[in-house]
Write a protein that binds this DNA or RNA. Sequence first.
DNA 1: ATTACATATGAATATATGCTCATATGAAGA
DNA 2: TCTTCATATGAGCATATATTCATATGTAAT
Lengths: 102, 102
Amino acid sequence: MNKNDHSFLSSEIVENVSLIFKALADPTRIKILYLLSQEECNVNHIAEVLEMSQSAVSHQLSMLRNLRLVKYRREGKTLFYSCDDEHVISLLKQAIDHSEHH
Amino acid sequence: MNKNDHSFLSSEIVENVSLIFKALADPTRIKILYLLSQEECNVNHIAEVLEMSQSAVSHQLSMLRNLRLVKYRREGKTLFYSCDDEHVISLLKQAIDHSEHH
DNA sequence: ATTACATATGAATATATGCTCATATGAAGA
DNA sequence: TCTTCATATGAGCATATATTCATATGTAAT
């Protein structure tokens, strides 16, 4: 195949796809997203269930928020986070299934 | 939800899923895998088409080989690489589609 | 206003990652 | 065997990433 005959991806698309997969590439974020795919959670609950510090969780939520993969609603002092991108959750679940069935 | 009521992912699964997405998280590897999903390529061809050094391509192929995402066959001095994990290619193409349609 | 609680954020640090450069390996032909 | 070509690999470096620690912000109750 000649160099000009390829169907190329624009660098914008490549960067976007890279961002999606980067979000899913970290064990901590995988656990957070999987947890949020099961139920809406507040920050401390996530920290307790996943046995990590409040700060670490909050930093990761901040990143996931920037990528619009999660959203939250406030109830008093508490913020309840949930998933905001079903497609990305679908990618995650497919990878989990794939991994579980070798 | 109580801490014990969650469906947890084993750390082995989490690590595996993380490895898959890490492989897909780098722009260079996205381009290589997308190219290989279109045609079998030798190393120099990949380097030329993607305008990167032979060494950089070879390092990335080495990683993709270890993860069994690509395979190769030899023809004389030349190695022809191709995709070896249709499921991962499927994840990649879904992310591309998603990204293209905003 | 003061305090307590829930969460966010900035700086610092440690580790991971991707590239380059130089060199090694390995196959094929002279 | 010597050379050439295709690819692989190791060391070193620069950047990115995830965490911790300390502190800030913001809400609600007293």
